[in-house]
């Protein structure tokens, strides 16, 4: 049954915000609580091990990737009585060593892929990892081997995910994937939230009115999440990192990044930044 909706993105592109809004709609809750993680994560190690019935810590990364399609098919099978199964993804869209797509098309209803300006991601990512300068974050988003977690002792209860560099991640889902993908720009979510989220809801054929979407957006206001994070912390943030729920502003890079860091990112991601309108005709960031 095609009942999985992948919520995919490079990290720090609005994925958690989208998850909370969708979760708020599904549960019709009065308020979103950040200690209740909304929707499944494709890398949730506990859920994966319960499904496999053996530990992934006994397997190589390649072996785990070979098992992943069957895990997601099982989740699809077990989720048939519910609304669509929303699953968060940061991996790039790729095949495993067996030549099978890790995210199988036969159980996929759709994908929402969130794209955000990599210059703004750079600022956010530096704070997320607690890096002491933005250039190090630029190196991460230009690294073709970029992965989460960075090593085996910082698993955060997740399996290894191959993120790849920003361009490869975006290109894999938006241009190369074999499943239906709706591309949503983070900047549109910020500038016109009601219209953008309504558009997502309509695309997914979810039965929610504009009033309900507006209400969900109010429940998921970032200031409310910031207050909760200050009180109880947030599990998806690595130790040593800054706040998970930051300001999420658009074009914050203009006040933060040096010319050197901007040039590094633009040079690395020129083609894909052009495709999504983050560069002007002269190739300069907008």
């Amino acid at each position: 049954m095609k009942n999985i909706i992948w919520l995919a993105s490079f990290p720090r592109s609005g994925n958690t915000w989208l998850r909370y809004v969708i979760s708020s709609l599904l549960e019709q809750a009065d308020a979103a609580k950040i200690d209740i993680i909304p929707t499944l994560h494709c890398a949730n190690r506990k859920a994966i091990e319960e499904t496999l019935s053996f530990s992934v810590s006994l397997l190589s990364v390649e072996e785990v990737n070979n098992f992943r399609p069957a895990v997601y098919r099982q989740w699809s099978k077990e989720g048939t009585q519910r609304p669509p199964l929303f699953i968060k993804v940061h991996d790039c869209y790729a095949k495993n060593e067996n030549g099978r797509h890790i995210f199988p098309s036969d159980v996929t209803q759709a994908t929402i892929y969130l794209v955000r300006n990599p210059l703004d991601i750079c600022v956010s990512y530096a704070h997320f990892w607690g890096l002491d300068n933005y250039d190090k974050a630029a190196d991460l988003i230009c690294d073709k081997a970029h992965s989460l977690p960075a090593n085996n002792i910082d698993l955060f209860g997740q399996i290894y995910q191959h993120i790849a560099d920003w361009s490869a991640n975006v290109d894999s889902w938006c241009n190369e994937s074999k499943i239906p993908v709706k591309i949503v720009k983070y900047e549109d979510m910020k500038h016109a939230p009601l219209a953008t989220f309504s558009n997502i809801v309509e695309y997914l054929n979810l039965p929610y009115t504009e009033d309900e979407i507006q209400s969900a957006l109010q429940h998921c206001d970032i200031t409310k999440f910031q207050q909760q994070e200050a009180e109880i912390g947030f599990g998806d943030r690595p130790y040593g990192g800054d706040k998970f729920f930051r300001q999420g502003k658009v074009n914050v890079w203009q006040d933060k990044l040096t010319k050197h860091t901007v040039n590094k990112i633009v040079s690395c991601h020129n083609a894909m930044m052009q495709q999504f309108g983050y560069l002007n005709d002269a190739g300069d960031p907008i």
Binding site: L52, S53, F54, E63, N66, Q74
Partner: peptide, 18 residues
């Protein structure tokens, strides 16, 4: 029945590829 296991009272079967 999971993707790699089948279970009944007093009987567990696990098949791990390779």
């Amino acid at each position: 029945q999971g993707p790699y296991c089948q279970v009944a009272p007093n009987h567990f079967f696990l098949s791990i590829d390779n």
